[in-house]
């Protein structure tokens, strides 16, 4: 306990991961999810945004068995197990792609660009993929 106190106050920063890439075609979606899961172990205030083609990462009913790649879409469900609860999807990006929140594999908060701008404004570390 004493040793703990000597370390001083824990730093808690706001980490934001911005996902703008579709899955499978490139590795960015998978490797960003890996960082997001690791970050959860650090007790930071973590948020994820899915916008532009990044919304396709969350499309439900993915089945990659015939392209020989791992279907990692179910791993997004693990975010909830790690208490990563700030998961935002841009409304305009979803609509532009003919999708709704019902098409997504996990429950998310759908926000307008305007509302997302306020989320982005609060961050300390922004990691794009």
């Amino acid at each position: 306990m004493e040793e703990w106190e000597e370390e001083g106050p824990e730093i808690v920063k706001k980490f934001l991961y911005v996902n703008r890439r579709a899955p499978y075609g490139t590795i960015y979606a998978l490797e960003c999810l890996e960082v997001a899961l690791i970050t959860a172990a650090f007790d930071q205030e973590e948020s994820l945004i899915f916008m532009d083609d990044g919304v396709f990462q969350l499309k439900k009913n993915q089945d990659s068995s015939d392209i020989g790649m791992k279907n990692f879409s179910k791993t997004y469900r693990a975010l909830d197990d790690y208490d990563v609860e700030r998961i935002y999807v841009e409304k305009e990006s979803l609509e532009a792609r003919g999708l709704t929140a019902d098409d997504l594999i996990i429950p998310v908060e759908v926000l307008s660009s305007e509302e997302l701008r306020e989320i982005i404004d609060k961050q300390d570390v922004v990691i794009s993929s």
Binding site: D52, E92, I120
Partner: peptide
């Protein structure tokens, strides 16, 4: 409010990063 520096490294005619940046940047 924080002052954000947006870095854009793609041509606006190749990818949509610039458009999205301008949509999300605040005054």
């Amino acid at each position: 409010m924080s002052h954000i520096l947006h870095l854009v490294n793609k041509s606006p005619t190749e990818r949509n990063g610039f458009d999205t940046c301008l949509r999300m940047a605040k005054p």
